[in-house]
Nucleic acid binder design. Structure first.
Length: 293
DNA sequence: CCGCGGGCCTGAGAGC
DNA sequence: TGCTCTCAGGCCCGCG
């Protein structure tokens, strides 16, 4: 599911049951997701109080009282469910859900708040890792991540600077987590549409002769802000996998202007164009060739 | 260093 | 019904 708005939605769903609560019991149901779990993974979690639940790019980060941080990434198909105490079928054991879906429940936490937190991930591109907080800045998974798109450090000047001289397309540049961290295929397409910029345009076009931000860069940053904030407000986008931790669907997919709308009319007032799809760097790009220049 | 294509996994949906 | 093919919200790696 997960781009920044979906991960942020998950964070907000988990926060009330995890923050300030203790992990009474942790369980992994297979040896690996994308990577093998660390040998001491469960041991470093069990008994720990979660002092805070944050997000960096598409990572969730649970701060533990021990000084460790639990890093969680949802990959392509990862999701969390919160199962309230009332719905647990046996107090000592983890909830056993029905259906084939249960085969992909890979990590479970019983929290002292009374809830079970269950991580499900059919494709297993997701992963979890426990690292010491004072080693965060050396963590290879996080090193090199660019600025948070909704943070203060991300503005037109910064975007222009990191795109200056880039031969690659705007689409590829925005998908590059070193340039800006948290966008994925949906929100890149949607932001480019809202900025009326072609996904084929060279990334270098965001910077002027001296590296100063062009109007394009300013438009793009504004569009990224708007689309991410709107999507977070809607609880993210539910296409296949994404649900809020409560099971409710996000509804930003109803606000897509180009993503997954191949052949449908452009939603720019008075444009009259048709949304097209093509492949860039192995991923589908959706855009309106008439109003994105 | 940079940009691209392949690979990692499973499941859903289309077409036959 | 069932087979085969394509595609999917991410990211790492190796190649040129």
């Amino acid at each position: 599911m997960p781009e920044l708005p979906e991960v942020e939605t998950v964070r907000r769903g988990l926060q009330p049951v995890m923050e300030g609560a203790r992990i009474l019991k942790a369980e992994t149901r297979r040896a690996d997701l994308r990577f093998h779990f660390q040998p001491d993974f469960v041991k470093r979690l069990q008994g720990q109080t979660v002092t805070g639940l944050g997000r960096r790019a598409k990572y969730l980060m649970a701060d533990l009282a021990s000084g460790d941080v639990l890093l969680m990434h949802l990959g392509m198909s990862g999701s969390f469910r919160v199962i309230k105490a009332d719905d647990q079928n046996s107090p000592g054991e983890f909830h056993h859900p029905r259906g084939k879906d249960a085969a992909h429940d890979h990590v479970l936490f019983r929290m002292s708040s009374g809830a079970d937190v269950v991580f499900n991930d059919p494709r297993r591109f997701g992963y979890m890792k426990v690292i010491a907080r004072d080693a965060l800045d050396r963590e290879p998974l996080l090193r090199g991540l660019g600025p948070e798109p909704l943070g203060n450090a991300f503005d037109a000047a910064m975007l222009a600077q990191s795109c200056a001289g880039k031969k690659t397309s705007l689409k590829a540049a925005l998908l590059d987590q070193r340039v800006v961290a948290g966008l994925g295929n949906i929100y890149v397409c949607e932001a480019l549409f809202r900025a009326h910029l072609s996904p084929k345009r060279q990334a270098a076009a965001l910077a002027g002769r001296k590296g100063e931000p062009t109007d394009h860069a300013k438009r793009l940053v504004a569009a990224i802000h708007v689309v991410l904030n709107d999507a977070i407000r809607a609880g993210g986008s539910s296409l296949r996998d994404h649900r809020q931790t409560s099971g409710e669907l996000g509804y930003f997919q109803h606000s897509f202007r180009v993503y997954d709308r191949e052949g449908e009319p452009c939603r720019t007032a008075g444009c009259g164009g048709v949304v097209r799809r093509f492949t860039q760097n192995g991923r589908s790009t959706f855009w309106c060739p008439k109003c994105q220049k």
